[in-house]
């Protein structure tokens, strides 16, 4: 059953990893879209900035002689999350709020977010260059190999420490977000404002505070997503468009303004990507003898070549917009 183990390694684990990243990004995008009513294009670069801040903090910690059982990048992450949340609020005060107060059309806010995206992109590349960097500059990345003798497999399941941390963090973050949104005053206020901003305002909800909360959650989770992605692979300053498109797809699939939908959408997009680039003929090969002689299993039976991976979120997006613009979880069509 080597093939099954291969499938689990290539699809189940890889899909959960990338799905978690998309989910962490999409929660922020969907909250901002639902509450502030515009597509926040700068989110991908906010993730990059968050990862960069984590890297800086991690280097500083390592120089200060801190050593931890967990990867140092993971230990630095909470600080980077706070910094990114502050950055997000700062950007809102300087750029988005004046535009909102001037009563511009929502699409102008989208343009402003494109401008901010370019500013962050430029700064990150100016400061970090365009080469990739590893978070594991002083320690080794732990890799767990789990043998499955009962399946008669010679291959073993492979999962790395950052991947375990990533999945664990996503689960904790999702549960925490759930309790925040359903049990606390601020969370309920956020949901109310997402449903109907005017009604929320006249019932006495401090909408300005809700905006702050949105940026704190969005920015914090973006930093976490970026850091965890960089821990899993490497820190890439030019992530931007490759990650923002799947995140938007995830947010729209789940339904705008629906955090649970965003999580489901993130995993949906992540798994679709890994399933589409998976070479299915590997799974069919053990059954080669069962096929009639004229039907030969092709060597490569992947739906999409890896270099066209970017097309998958796009087609998911198009399919959702055509068939169910509200998304799976009955979000809003703005």
């Amino acid at each position: 059953m080597n093939e099954l183990v291969f499938f689990i390694n290539k699809v189940v684990i890889a899909g959960s990893v990338i799905g978690s990243i998309y989910a962490l990004g999409a929660i922020g995008v969907t909250l901002i879209f639902g509450i502030l009513r515009f597509a926040h294009f700068a989110h991908g670069d906010m993730m990059t900035v968050g990862a960069g801040l984590s890297l800086v903090v991690a280097v500083l910690l390592a120089e200060a002689g801190v050593s931890t059982p967990l990867p140092i990048g993971f230990v630095a992450m909470p600080i980077a999350m706070v910094l990114t949340a502050l950055l997000a609020i700062g950007l809102d005060r300087t750029f988005y709020k004046p535009l909102r107060d001037a009563g511009v059309r929502p699409v102008v806010l989208v343009m402003a977010s494109v401008g901010i995206m370019l500013m962050m992109q430029g700064l990150v590349r100016l400061l970090a260059g365009s080469s990739t960097r590893s978070f594991f500059f002083s320690e080794r990345k732990d890799i767990f190999r789990i043998d499955l003798p009962f399946l008669e497999a010679r291959r073993s399941l492979v999962i790395t420490e950052p991947q375990v941390l990533l999945i664990a963090f996503t689960v904790v973050a999702v549960v925490a977000l759930h309790f925040f949104l359903t049990r606390t005053r601020h969370g309920k206020a956020m949901r109310a404002m997402s449903d109907n901003a005017d009604l929320a305002r006249i019932t006495g909800i401090n909408t300005e505070q809700v905006v702050w909360m949105t940026w704190i959650i969005g920015g914090g989770l973006a930093a976490a997503g970026g850091t965890l992605l960089s821990l899993d692979v490497t820190f890439k300053p030019d992530l931007s468009f490759n990650i923002i498109l799947p995140i938007f797809a995830a947010a729209i699939v789940g339904g705008i303004g629906r955090p649970y939908g965003a999580i489901a959408g993130g995993f949906l997009v992540g798994f679709t990507e890994t399933l589409a680039i998976f070479n299915w003929s590997i799974l069919l090969r053990p059954f080669d003898a069962l096929f009639p002689a004229w039907l030969e299993v092709p060597a490569n039976l992947a739906f999409v070549p890896t270099e066209y991976k970017i097309t998958i979120p796009f087609f998911i997006l198009v399919a959702v917009l055509v068939w169910r613009p509200t998304g799976l979880f009955k979000g809003r069509v703005l």
């Binding site: 343009m111 901010i116 370019l118 500013m119 992109q121 430029g122 590349r125 100016l126 365009s130």
Partner: peptide, 18 residues
């Protein structure tokens, strides 16, 4: 890297003009 500064300037111009 210096040329990336122009990305920043373009972004800043967009936000300021808006």
């Amino acid at each position: 890297r210096a040329l990336q500064m122009r990305v920043f300037i373009i972004g800043l111009t967009i936000t300021l003009v808006l």
